[in-house]
Nucleic acid binder design. Sequence first.
DNA 1: CGGCTACTATGACCGCTGTCATAGTCGACC
DNA 2: GGTCGACTATGACAGCGGTCATAGTAGCCG
Lengths: 196, 196
Amino acid sequence: MTQARRGPRERMVFSAAQLIRRQGVTATGMREVAAHADAPRGSLQHYFPGGKEQLVNEAVAWAGRYAGKRVDRFLAGLDRPTPSGLFAAMAAQWADEYAADGFAAGCPVAAATVDCATSGDSTRNAAATAFATWRGPVAEALTDMGVPPSRAESLATLMISALEGAILMARAERDVRSLTTVVKELGPLLDAATGP
Amino acid sequence: MTQARRGPRERMVFSAAQLIRRQGVTATGMREVAAHADAPRGSLQHYFPGGKEQLVNEAVAWAGRYAGKRVDRFLAGLDRPTPSGLFAAMAAQWADEYAADGFAAGCPVAAATVDCATSGDSTRNAAATAFATWRGPVAEALTDMGVPPSRAESLATLMISALEGAILMARAERDVRSLTTVVKELGPLLDAATGP
DNA sequence: CGGCTACTATGACCGCTGTCATAGTCGACC
DNA sequence: GGTCGACTATGACAGCGGTCATAGTAGCCG
């Protein structure tokens, strides 16, 4: 999944995303990113002349693309695609990670939003497009399942909102209960939208 | 609402919460908190011998209590209390603030979770109890409205999750659309739970 | 070989952070 | 008055932050 055989630049973006989703943006240092990526420190200013802001923005954008691609993966994994099934798969990815590796990490986009929405306008913008990049495939998948296009965007927003909030609570409580709860409660509502 | 006539200690906790919800925990400095509270710097180590961690934890706890009390306020403001009405009021508080004062601030509990869930265990714990302090009154209100106790906790979790996520997206996109969307989509589901 | 570009390697700078140490002020109480 | 406690006021410290400057290496091209 995470090929070590990638350019140092890409590795640094990836490492930045990993560290950001664990510690937040401000608490993540540039030197730390380089060390985590096994990349030379001098490459930072070479690949990211825009400084930390650029690196963070690219990490956020990467996370958005990753989340969007995952949606297609989830759809391929469902033999009988339903909205609730997709949502359950999205939440299960997080629940599985938490069960396996602990509750150390959250969503990088959320971290960037919380940490930079006020100060860094470009980062805030990167987070907005990341959410859009994520929401797009979800809404598209919903319409493919029979959800009217007018509601697909709304339901996609609801799904991502509930998921992000549940991730937050799960990390705080060190318990995946919030994730399983939102899946259980939201499932029927989502599937009901596929009817005429 | 925010009486300036309070002890310096309380003012500092309040200011800490305000700054944290704007900038995050790490980006908020102790000196900055003291200045924002018009409190002497020397009082920091006097009132908070536990250092920044203690101050942050108290700010998070304060936010949790505040959110819990707001629920009762919202209920008092509704002449005909319904689950969807409560949820709409909770979201409207944020939408109104964003419309009036801009999208600078988020939820302090979310900020603390994102910033300290990995590093600071005591702060993570404070965030967990803050969520519980918030969820309690919501679930209680739902049962009072006729929601079976078995589902009340689940729906309260769903409401807070969706709200937190919508806050996140609203800040990133500088648009309250996510807030209004989750209210619209989740309302019928919530009200349907009051039936037998 | 010379020259050029891509990348790496360090070291230094300044600013800010949380924390500690010390001295000072103020008011109440015996 | 004298003493004690609560609170305030500064200054210093050590550490880390991002960033700039400069020098170095490697490889390709002509």
